[in-house]
Design a protein around this nucleic acid. Structure first.
Length: 589
RNA sequence: GGGGUGGUAGUUCAGCUGGUUAGAACGCCGGCCUGUCACGCCGGAGGCCGCGGGUUCGAGUCCCGUCCACCCCGCCA
């Protein structure tokens, strides 16, 4: 790849090698370090490709010296000089260009800098990274750091691999509107007032869901888009208010076809970016994932699987009480945990599970002869089901099923991380499918769609809709999970308007309401809709995993804080009252 | 909406149970130094101790409130 072309520079800062000795070169870049030894000055020049040492000594003209003395960290300079092989004792084996240096014949300062708010270049290695607040305020400086550049280059590669793969498999990239109709389901919408329609509002898309289904009805057969989505909900380390999805929809799709095509995309991404060939991606049903891992986004890079026990006949009070109240109790065994987990550590785990609305944690250490700890009061025959060996630690959680699953599931990852059971260089991918189609809204008690109301229930479960077994209906939906992160999800959609109407009915949506919210989709479905399905990948999370970070802000050029502010740009901000007036909006703050 | 951690020099941090003039490192400014690569040495400047109240003879330190950053619960079809 040539980066020089018609530019003045002859090489980038990562290019020179001892074999270039004797060449006249021009470099342009930022001053990464200045080592002024009096009679000789060494400048490290940095660009996105690397670092090159420039030498100024008594062979250099007075004008070179004059400018070299003025140079400061992060000045932008152009240096002309002669590439020289370094003397054997002066070679730096830690640098790609460590065998060469450029003896300057000209140093031109292209741009100066004010004193920096924090160390940017390799000199920053000696200082800790500044706070996120400072990094975000001066994002242009943070992004100058090679580590941040590396992540955005990986992101760039991921865009290209995605487009190339999907194009090669017959997908058409289509853009859908950013100014949309609000639908009151799902996350909170970001709203945009209409100037020409007083009192009317657009919503920014939470996803292009309905549009991509309409593209299927329109006959595009295979669609994709790398698109921004917006959800006005509280943030997390892996959640931003605006984020990027690889949005995909396939006509005449079945779950096996979706899996085959998407496994190929994921394989390509890991192959071309990480250079690794993934093993085939396994599939777990939702029910199995919950039983074995407690969560629907399990990290399968380590064991510590949950163990369901048959508690028949137990008189152990905590478990008995939970079971009698309609709850469950299940366990987890930590091999060697009897010595690896101190009482203090177990107490901390007990506190940990309380976050997830669990009352506490029962534990027991398997000894050569029996059990110690609270679990020693349980009937020993029942504990045999745990399959623990002497030296193992068993943890048992009892309570309402959702709390037990979630708490023990989160604890499983917490323990694995704490005990170093996770190989940080490995990737654990797994598909989860056969999700429940409906769940009860905790506040209203109404049935709501777990995925979205266009998700097709499994054929054999369709008759259960609207009956008292509504909660047993499973859907043809699937998520892709990597290292415990949900990185994608989708479903086979309903393409039949009669079935769609039945789902709305089962959800307690009147025909009128359904028409008001989704009328245009219902109309479209009535004009010859092919069977179709698809999914969307969380592109930021994917890049996060591919670049080895656990924070989504690290892979977004200009992210927002946990209070959804852009500290650099200063958004959100107040606006001129005249703007509001034009938009028929009145400020009530 | 709730819980937790943090906020002291440009940056990263120290500052014990309240006590005289708030320190260090890096950076910045000036000087010295001909082979450095975290260069070294000497000197200097730089502080509304996040903000607002309160307790006290006295607050960086204790109390209340508030703002900001981060992590988590709720939330995120």
């Amino acid at each position: 790849m040539s980066t020089v072309g018609l530019s003045r520079r002859t090489h980038d800062c990562g290019a020179l090698r001892p074999s270039d000795a004797g060449s006249t070169v021009i470099l342009q870049g930022w001053v990464d370090s200045v080592r002024d030894n009096g009679g000789v000055i060494f400048l490290l020049i940095r660009d996105r490709y690397g670092l090159t040492q420039v030498t100024v000594d008594d062979r250099c003209a007075p004008a070179v010296w004059e400018n070299a003395r003025k140079v400061r960290l992060e000045y932008v300079v152009e240096v002309e000089g002669t590439a020289m092989a370094r003397a054997p004792g002066a070679v730096n084996p830690d640098m790609a260009t460590g065998g060469v240096e450029v003896l300057a014949t000209r140093v031109t300062i292209l741009s100066r800098t004010r004193p920096l708010p924090f160390a940017v270049g390799s000199g920053g290695a000696k200082a800790a990274l500044p706070s996120e607040e400072v990094r975000l305020t001066y994002r242009y400086l943070d992004l100058r750091r090679p580590e941040m550049q590396r992540r955005l280059f990986i992101r760039h590669r991921a865009y290209q691999v995605t487009r190339r793969y999907l194009d090669a498999h017959g997908f058409t990239e289509v853009e859908t509107p950013i100014l949309n109709k609000s639908t009151p389901e799902g996350a909170r919408d970001y709203l945009v007032p209409s100037r020409v329609h007083p009192g009317h509002w657009y919503a920014l898309p939470q996803s292009p869901q309905i549009f991509k289904q309409i593209l299927m009805i329109a006959g595009f057969d295979r669609y994709f888009q790398i698109c921004k989505c917006f959800r006005d909900e509280d943030l997390r380390a892996d959640r931003q208010p605006e984020f990027t999805q690889i949005d995909i929809e396939i006509s005449f799709a079945t779950w096996p076809l979706v899996k085959e095509l998407m496994d190929g995309l994921i394989q390509s991404l890991f192959q071309e970016i990480q250079g690794i060939t993934l093993p085939p991606i396994p599939v777990l049903s939702y029910a199995e994932a919950i039983a074995r891992y407690g969560v629907d986004n399990p990290d399968i890079r380590f064991g510590l699987e949950h163990i369901g026990l048959d508690w028949a006949g137990t008189e152990f009070r905590v478990v008995r009480g939970a079971l009698d109240a309609g709850g469950i109790a299940k366990g987890m065994v930590i091999p060697g945990g009897a010595t690896r987990a101190s009482r203090k550590v177990i107490d901390a785990w007990t506190e940990f599970v309380k976050r997830y609305r669990l009352g506490g944690l029962l534990w027991g250490k398997r000894t050569d002869t029996g059990w110690s700890g609270p679990l020693s009061k349980v009937e020993p025959a029942l504990l045999d089901q745990l399959g623990a060996n002497p030296g193992d630690l068993a943890l048992v959680a009892a309570g309402p099923a959702p709390h037990v699953h979630t708490a023990l599931g989160r604890l499983r990852s917490h323990v694995a991380e704490q005990l170093g059971l996770i190989d940080p260089d490995s990737f654990g991918l797994v598909w989860i499918n056969a999700f429940p189609a409906f769940e009860r809204d905790e506040e209203t008690g109404r049935w709501v769609a777990v995925h979205h109301p266009f998700t097709k229930p499994l054929d054999e479960h369709i008759p259960l809709m609207g009956t008292d077994r509504m909660g047993e209906v499973l859907s043809d939906a699937y998520d892709l999970v990597c290292n415990g992160y949900e990185i994608g999800g989708g479903s086979i959609r309903i393409h039949d308007q009669a079935l769609q109407a039945r789902v709305f009915e089962a959800l307690g949506l009147s025909e009128e309401e359904a028409r008001h919210k989704f009328g245009f989709l219902l109309d479209a479905l009535s004009y010859g809709a092919p069977p179709h399905g698809g999914l969307a990948f969380g592109f930021d999370r994917l890049v996060m995993i591919l670049s080895g970070t656990d924070n989504i802000r690290d892979v977004i050029a200009f992210p927002k804080t946990t209070t959804a502010q852009d500290l650099m740009a200063g958004s959100p901000s107040t606006v001129d009252p005249a703007q509001l007036e034009e938009l028929w909006v009145r400020n009530t703050v």
